[in-house]
């Protein structure tokens, strides 16, 4: 409710703007960098570490309790994210991919947890750092496994095209692999979380305004619609948040896989 309490708008209803939703004041006055998303990001990291620690510090052969749940997540990441793209190298990168998946999932779920209610990834800095680290890893692995020249040659000159056409197509390959791909990797997560948070804030604001602030016979049905839509979209958001965490890990594994094996 902290983020969703209506600021003073005067007499008319007006939709929440990105500035009031995402430009949050520091928690401790004077410490500029320590805002709500930073707090939630640190908290999420602690949650992920604690969860995996509780699950795998003393693993049992027959999983019980926390181990059961986290092992289910591990199986999901291994079978859906790592193995299809990495093949026999899957086990080497499971640590990275599992961490990515769980971290992004908890970040996103912060958007629907009561009191927290802020998806950390809706500030572009957080997904950008993750995407940048994956990008550096992708280039490093590409140089290591294919050689510096070989990496660029495999990337920019796909076999099976007529020779003169390469002059026209190589710039497209280069730009798409080196700049657009990491950019969309970060922006996809950011934009989904940003838009989802805006949507939830808008509908709950409609409900809050027409049912509590200005209760009129004509406005009450609109407020009821707002509340119902908030509930529906919260469920939808949970699905999107899970899907985006999965896609982020999947794209990371796809880029790593592309660097490990030259394409065809």
């Amino acid at each position: 409710m902290i983020t969703l309490t209506a600021p003073a708008h005067g007499d008319e209803f007006s939709a929440p703007t990105p500035n009031e939703l995402f430009d949050l004041a520091p928690i401790i006055p004077g410490v500029e960098w320590f805002t709500k998303p930073v707090l939630l990001a640190v908290l999420s990291a602690v949650i992920v570490i604690g969860l995996t620690w509780a699950a795998f510090s003393k693993p049992k052969l027959v999983p019980r309790g926390v181990q059961n749940v986290v092992e289910y997540g591990y199986m999901f990441v291994r079978d859906q994210v790592a193995r299809p793209f990495l093949g026999k190298d899957a086990d080497r990168f499971m640590g990275l991919l599992l961490t990515l998946f769980f971290l992004v999932l908890v970040w996103n779920l912060m958007g629907v947890v009561p009191i927290a209610q802020f998806p950390v990834a809706s500030h572009i800095a957080f997904p950008a750092v993750l995407a940048l680290s994956i990008y550096v890893l992708k280039i490093y692995l590409g140089f290591k496994h294919q050689g510096v020249g070989g990496y660029f040659k495999n990337m920019m000159f796909p076999p099976g095209l007529p020779k003169p056409i390469y002059l026209l197509l190589s710039p497209i390959e280069f730009l798409s692999n080196m700049i657009i791909a990491p950019f969309t990797h970060a922006v996809r997560l950011f934009a989904n979380m940003f838009a989802g948070h805006m949507l939830l804030a808008f509908f709950s604001m409609v409900g809050f305004w027409f049912l509590f602030e200005k209760l009129t016979p004509l406005g009450a049905p609109v407020g009821v619609i707002g509340v119902v839509m908030t509930i529906i979209f919260t469920g939808f958001e949970i699905f999107i948040q899970f899907l985006q965490a999965f896609l982020f890990a999947m794209l990371a594994s796809m880029y790593i896989g592309g660097s490990l094996h030259a394409e065809h």
Binding site: I172, L175, S176, I180, T184, M254, G258
Partner: peptide, 16 residues
């Protein structure tokens, strides 16, 4: 899956 994720970035890159 590889193709589906790459096509939008190819088109965007060509356009840019």
């Amino acid at each position: 899956a590889d193709a589906m994720w790459s096509i939008p970035s190819y088109l965007l890159a060509g356009m840019i």
